[in-house]
Simulated assay, not measured.
Amino acid sequence: MSFPPELLPHYTPRLVLRRFDDTDLQPFLAYRNDPEVARYQSWSMFAPTDAQHFIREMKRARIGEPGEWFQIAIAERRTNRLLGDIGMCVDAQRPTHMELGFTLALPAQGQGYGREAVQAWITRTFQHTAITTIVGITDSRNMPSRKLLQALGMQWTRTDEREFKGESCLEETYAVTALGWQP
């Protein structure tokens, strides 16, 4: 099951959710190589060649392929400037469940862009696909991420002890269902 390709691009009042394009390389490298942005992410640094490969892959990847992560570019609607991305992965074992994550460049944080983008993507996912449950997982120390998941109406489901980047942490899982979603 992949998602309908016409889900992207999608326009919100201030943003466009779209596929990555070649003009995204420098802003992508800037936020992906920012240690503050990468602190709670699975990556730490991105070489230019890795970023080029990533963008090339995302330009042609199928949206919603079970077991495969797909990144959606979050860009400013007026300028098309890349601000961050939403990652999503449909569960290969339960194809009605999807995990999502989000990353914003430091200058774009604290302006409501994350909420606007993730809320729009969750709404589109529930309206146009067979997904019934969406989860977000975050380090308990990542207060902005936790606040965003809670502000979206996602409910805490569990906390697990993990080792992440060489240190112990608590990983919190939040979830929302199509029936419980209230954009």
Rank of each mutant, 00 (worst) to 15 (best):
L148F: 14
G180Q: 15
Q93P: 00
A51E: 04
R19A: 13
P27Y: 06
A175L: 06
P13C: 04
L83K: 03
D160N: 09
A120W: 03
F70Q: 08
V37L: 12
D139I: 03
T23Q: 07
Q93C: 08
R94I: 07
H53T: 15
V90L: 11
R19D: 11
A108D: 04
S145N: 12
R94S: 05
H53D: 13
F3V: 07
P27H: 02
L7Q: 02
M1G: 14
T159N: 08
V135I: 14
Y31K: 02
R162P: 05
I63C: 13
D34L: 05
P4R: 04
G110T: 02
L7R: 06
P9I: 10
R18P: 02
T103K: 00
G136S: 10
G84M: 04
A175M: 11
G64E: 02
V37A: 11
F46Y: 09
A105C: 06
I131S: 00
W69H: 12
L83M: 01
Q52N: 12
L170A: 08
E171D: 10
Q182H: 12
Y31E: 05
P183C: 13
D21Y: 13
M88R: 11
R81F: 10
A47N: 07
F3E: 07
L100P: 03
Q93W: 05
S2R: 01
A30T: 05
E161M: 02
T79Q: 09
D50K: 06
A151L: 11
R14F: 00
R56D: 13
D160S: 09
I63M: 15
L17G: 10
R158I: 02
G67A: 06
